[in-house]
């Protein structure tokens, strides 16, 4: 088990969130979207031309850019 950033996951892969390194405003928004340490997150798909990622936490699907995903550290399952 080693930690990596959410942006490195492959499609269909699931991981556990271990840390979020974002500024206050983004951090709060991520919390509200359901990004919390210990939660399982699945990468559903990536958009073309290095566009946003679609991830799933529980019953919520979220789009976020790669640069934001890099701020979220996860443990591969």
């Amino acid at each position: 088990m080693h930690s990596t950033s959410l942006s490195t996951l492959h499609t269909g892969e699931t991981a556990t969130i271990v840390a979020i390194h974002a500024d206050e405003a983004l951090h709060q928004r991520l919390l509200a979207m359901g990004f919390r340490t210990g939660k399982r997150v699945e990468l559903i798909r990536r958009a073309r031309f290095s566009g946003p990622l679609q991830v799933r936490i529980g019953t919520t699907d979220i789009l976020l850019r790669k640069i934001e995903a890099e701020k979220i550290t996860v443990h591969r399952a």
Partner: peptide, 8 residues
């Protein structure tokens, strides 16, 4: 601005 959006 970060882009974080829910997909309903």
């Amino acid at each position: 601005e970060p882009f974080v959006l829910e997909l309903p």
